[in-house]
Design a protein around this nucleic acid. Structure first.
Lengths: 220, 220
DNA sequence: TTTAAATTTCAACGCTTGTTGAAATGTGCG
DNA sequence: CGCACATTTCAACAAGCGTTGAAATTTAAA
């Protein structure tokens, strides 16, 4: 089938494509730039993946299952350790975000490029509708179900808008634009995912509670 | 200098460029697509704006001052109506977000495309550092100063991470990807900025207070 | 109406794009 | 080795790209 020496070049194409697509988007990268970065002939990308769009999809598929499994495992784990009532909001958000640190943990810089690429498609009016549902809908619905249970009586509308706010904050974090580094004068660093999540978890949890619980009960 | 009949074609180029750049990004749009959409010859874009990148910049400059003025006026207004202690967090966030509804108010669909374009560059690792500071740094620092005053004792680090979360939630809203429409089964609509801000303001305000005040005082 | 300037179109340029078929090279098995 | 097959390179294609100089047209003032 596939021999051992051939894999490195195929993988290198995916690595470079991942990084360049994350930085410049689908149309901002040429197959020749990718081939050049991987020290490989242009035609090799077509041989392994077909059209440019197929290569784009292959980049996503390579890590999709691993990422979704890590996040789902984290959710299951906090559900198990919680009692009958289910986990608290903070624990659910934590399970949603912390596995994304595997980018740092594994030491594979490709993970960071991959997450930046997800940020790119999630924020794109063109790619978002075409790719996000297929990749993440199932996982997201599980997390929202857990949040629904942790916030009894919450309106569906409130629940989804809050998730939208969480998704936006996360997306900008994954995009790694370095804007917060400059704004804060170096006090915050875009690359420090741990610090980002340390602040995002209580921020988002408080937002969920305010919108889904406190504000609604106040008018009862 | 510039006559009256020439403006329509120049403006139409900007309108179409604004819409297509917001949807597909800088590299995903060709000058011929823009010219075609504006029912104009390709060379006319070069005549009016120069290089493709100059046209890109012209799209931003057209509405930048108007947008920044509207948001700054809103901040000044809530500062005036507040007392010596300054406005509350909610009022500041409100002043930051509500002027963005002028997209709907003016009935000009170009505003929505413009805001989607800002979302595109803010989330882009390539364009973000090149364009965001020039366009928004001054305004953002004013709002953060107001928030600093409304959250006495807040750590600078906390303040900027919270602003980062706000910026992310806003960016995904402006991007108009329609993802929340599908996820919520139609209960939430991306195009409904008013609903988005109605949920974002209490969400973000609660997040700021939790991270900058409650959590820090708990360990004192 | 004449005239000069601004606007718009036309036609083409040199270059890059994604893609492909055929040739060359490498690999593992008998 | 010799053979089959996977991999990689080479060379080239048609199409589309941004850009430009010159011609045609429209506009505004004299």
């Amino acid at each position: 089938m596939s021999n051992k020496r051939s894999q490195p070049k195929r993988e290198r194409i995916l690595d470079v494509a991942e990084e360049l697509f994350a930085l410049h988007g689908f149309d901002g990268v040429t197959l020749r730039q990718i081939a050049n970065g991987a020290a490989v002939d242009v035609a090799l990308a077509s041989y392994h993946f077909g059209k440019k769009l197929d290569l784009f999809n292959a980049v996503f598929e390579r890590r999709a299952d691993l990422l979704n499994s890590a996040r789902l495992d984290a959710l299951r784990a906090c559900q198990s350790s919680a009692g009958e009532a289910g986990p608290e909001v903070e624990q659910i958000i934590e399970a949603f975000l912390r596995p994304l640190e595997l980018a740092q943990e594994t030491g594979d810089p490709g993970w960071q490029h991959y997450l930046a690429l997800i940020a790119y498609i999630n924020n794109s009016p063109y790619w978002g509708p075409r790719m996000m549902s297929k990749l993440f809908d199932q996982l997201v619905e599980e997390f929202i179900a857990a949040l629904r249970k942790a916030l009894p009586g919450a309106l569906e509308e409130d629940l989804y808008w809050c998730y939208h706010n969480l998704s936006g904050a996360l997306t900008l974090t994954l995009a790694q634009t370095g804007r917060i580094d400059k704004l804060s004068g170096g006090k915050c660093r875009s690359a420090d995912f741990e610090a980002a999540y340390d602040h995002m978890i209580p921020f988002v949890a408080a937002g969920f509670r305010e919108v889904c619980v406190n504000r609604r009960n106040a008018t009862d």
